[in-house]
């Protein structure tokens, strides 16, 4: 049986805790909004860039750009794993790590990783997976330039032949209550197979534009080698933004649950406190009444 003072102390600490979780929930909610807006802002660029790529890929007689070349059969793979730096976001990290490592197992070739986010890095490290690079400490809503080193590392691994395929493993944001861990292809790019690409959500129309007779300045090869690395960077950026949105959404929900739990606990504890107080008052009253009665009996006897 707790004493009244202990109960009061617990109530105070839980009240403080619920204020913290409520504040975190509000911060996450605003981050969800910002990250979601950033994802939507990539759409016009993604759409245009894809159109150009589809057009360029249709030109006959130019050598296939290295980023489009398939190596058949692939003998190695690289997975870029997006997780968060911090916890307190429910099962967000464990889900995507599980999905990514399951995918890696099915690939049947040696898989190496690029970890974006501390949680994923730590998990991969514990599994003794081979890490090519790690990127931590990204801002809550990352910018395009924050992600271009990640993309460049992935492109380099692919071009130097150390990875025949590159995949992005991240959590797709659907809505506040639903986020879906996915693995999508980054490289080689396949202009004819949009559905496999990470960008597919953002590109509405995949048919080549009717105007196919473009002049290329200075020439198609140069344009393609300007467009493709940037498009790859764009896909990495979009994946990072989806992951960031999902992370903040997961945290917002986790924090809301924590706040709700704290409130339930507070209600219970308040009840216990009131009962304990009432019990104490009753006891004191009994003491007084008993004392008074004893005194009266004493007086009566005299």
């Amino acid at each position: 049986m707790e004493t009244l003072r202990e109960i009061r102390r617990r109530i105070r600490s839980i009240r403080n805790l619920s204020q913290v979780t409520r504040a975190l929930e509000a911060v996450s909610a605003s981050n969800v909004q910002r990250a979601q807006a950033a994802v939507l802002a990539t759409r016009p660029y993604a759409h245009r860039a894809w159109e150009v790529i589809v057009n360029l890929a249709g030109i006959k007689g130019i050598p296939l750009h290295p980023l489009l070349v398939h190596r058949d059969p692939p003998r190695s793979a690289l997975i870029v794993l997006f997780t968060s730096d911090r916890g307190l976001c429910g099962a967000y990290n464990s889900h995507i790590i599980k999905v990514a490592t399951d995918f890696a197992q099915r690939l049947d070739v040696p898989v190496r990783y690029i970890a974006v986010g501390r949680r994923g890095r730590d998990a991969l490290w514990r599994m003794r997976a081979e890490l090519v690079a790690e990127f931590t400490g990204l801002p809550a809503v990352p910018g395009f330039l924050d992600l271009s080193p990640v993309a460049r590392a992935a492109i380099e691994e692919f071009l130097e032949g150390r990875a025949d395929e590159v995949f992005l493993a991240y959590t797709d944001y659907i809505n506040l209550l639903q986020q879906r861990p996915v693995v999508r292809r980054l490289l080689p790019l396949r202009p004819t197979r949009l559905d496999e690409q990470a960008v597919s959500e953002y590109v509405v129309d995949m048919r080549p534009a009717p105007v196919a007779d473009y002049i290329y300045e200075p020439d198609p090869e140069t344009v393609l080698s300007t467009v493709l690395p940037r498009f790859t960077e764009l896909q990495v950026y979009q994946a990072a933004l989806e992951a960031a949105t999902s992370e903040h959404a997961a945290r917002q929900v986790a924090m809301r649950n924590a706040t709700d739990n704290a409130e339930d606990l507070l209600r219970d504890l308040t009840l216990t406190r009131n009962k304990a107080r009432q019990r104490m008052i009753t006891r004191e009253l009994l003491d007084i009444a008993g004392g008074a009665e004893a005194l009266r009996q004493l007086e009566a006897r005299q």
Binding site: V52, Y214, E217, T222, T226
Partner: peptide, 20 residues
């Protein structure tokens, strides 16, 4: 700012894709 120098574009230009 085109790769090989400045490029001026006026309406009714032929379809073009240029690296900048």
């Amino acid at each position: 700012p085109g790769m090989d120098g400045e490029m001026g574009i006026l309406p009714r230009h032929a379809p073009l894709i240029a690296a900048l």
